[in-house]
Design a binder for these strands. Structure first.
Lengths: 233, 233
DNA sequence: GGGATGCTTCGGGGAAGCCCGAAACGACGC
DNA sequence: GCGTCGTTTCGGGCTTCCCCGAAGCATCCC
């Protein structure tokens, strides 16, 4: 065995053991939309006592998966970065392999249609947006990212999604394999910017109790201009 | 909390607990090059007794991460699929975040230059090959994969890497973020085919004791024709 | 200041799981 | 047929760690 193997083996196991507990997995899933939540709320979501949650949160922070932000007597926890969200979604893809996954599909329906993944849009809508951009040759394949081309930026401005200021920037995006659809959608700085604009323009809005997204007042007309029919997603 | 959360939370934890043990992580890392190895050999690599390894292997098979193949009195284990290799590499990326990773970098040097990741080529050489293809506009961004365009196939044949039979096929590739370089390289059917040809043509050869790759007799001249200098990788 | 709220630390009960040696099972070779 | 080899099953020791209630610390509100 090569010399480096023992250390990388232990690092891998360390990450694995952080995800190995349903309580910790629940905490990570609750934060996957990029939100920051206080310890008590996370304890309630995970279904454990505050004392237990405190220990779990401490371990997750120590392992570099969560970041803390103290504010008064509250301590807000959030994912340490987008890589962590990507990691959790990757694991979820692997776990969705079993036939048992279909049993929970009824409850997942709104999630499958459109949801947030960290700060970008995923689900069938995320895939549709990606394809929509790709068909218009708006995307350029870079050496470490997918970028918005000049033509694509212009088109996004024409549709009313991007501002003039957004146009010039070469926003780096990342392709992110979707949990439910197993196809590409846009993450990274470009994906985040796009999601931000979709909320600002009233095309989409967040729900209070779920990662699933709802159609905003201007969403139906807007998406239709892009060739996307929300009701048939 | 939404109804689907408990189940997805448990699925995530299940996958995590499979990776949580150094012994199991070592087994997965030993198989990440796509090889199939008998139980006893894996026990030796992981540094555990055969009885212990048997239990671990049983769990990994039950969890869908490994596949078995009985042959005589041996039982050969291998990764259940390329997704599993991708998953393990993704976790390794997350684990390589710490400063301690630099301590083991000396031993990792050959791995960082070129290695196999399941059946395709990764490391700096994998990144260089990807960039080389991209610069020549050989790659097309598809809706669920990166494909080899017609111009790219022609060019690969001119360089002597692909046969005439390879040319017509629209090989689907997947971008795979590199463990050490954190940049794109080619995986999927296209990545596998490319690696296969590199071995066949004598550009690269496998080492016996490591995932690291060595230069083959025709490798220096061949790579140089692609604009890649092996000694400076 | 006094009381409520949010969170953490402490102590201990209990379950899960890792590990091994010994023994059993099946396949191979002589 | 009989010993050997690869692998699995069984039994038991041991560690790890998950979980909670109670108590301790901070912060905020009245």
């Amino acid at each position: 065995m090569i010399a480096a193997a023992p250390t990388s083996r232990h690092r891998l196991a360390e990450i694995g053991s952080l995800l190995a507990e349903p309580a910790r997995a629940g905490i990570l899933l609750a934060l996957i939309d990029g939100s920051a939540r206080p310890a008590g709320e996370l304890a309630g979501l995970a279904g454990i006592a505050p004392a237990t949650a405190s220990a779990h949160l401490q371990r997750l922070v120590g392992g570099g998966l969560l970041a803390v932000h103290a504010q008064g007597r509250h301590r807000y926890f959030r994912l340490a970065g987008e890589e962590v969200a990507h990691l959790v979604e990757t694991l979820a893809v692997a776990g969705a392999r079993t036939p048992a996954a279909d049993a929970s599909s009824a409850a997942d329906a709104p999630l499958r249609r459109a949801r947030t993944c960290y700060r970008h849009v995923a689900g069938r809508l995320g895939v549709a947006l990606f394809e929509c951009l790709r068909e218009r040759d708006a995307l350029e394949l870079g050496d470490d990212a997918i970028r918005l081309g000049a033509a694509g930026a212009r088109w996004l401005r024409d549709v009313g999604l991007f501002d003039a200021g957004d146009e010039g920037r070469a926003l780096a995006g990342r392709s992110c394999v979707d949990w439910t659809e197993r196809r590409f959608h846009l993450a990274g700085a470009f994906g985040n910017r796009l999601a931000e604009r979709l909320f600002e323009r009233g095309w989409l809005r967040r729900r209070r109790d779920s990662r699933a997204l709802a159609l905003g007042p201007r969403g139906d007309a807007g998406l239709r201009a892009l060739g996307i029919d929300w009701t048939r997603l």
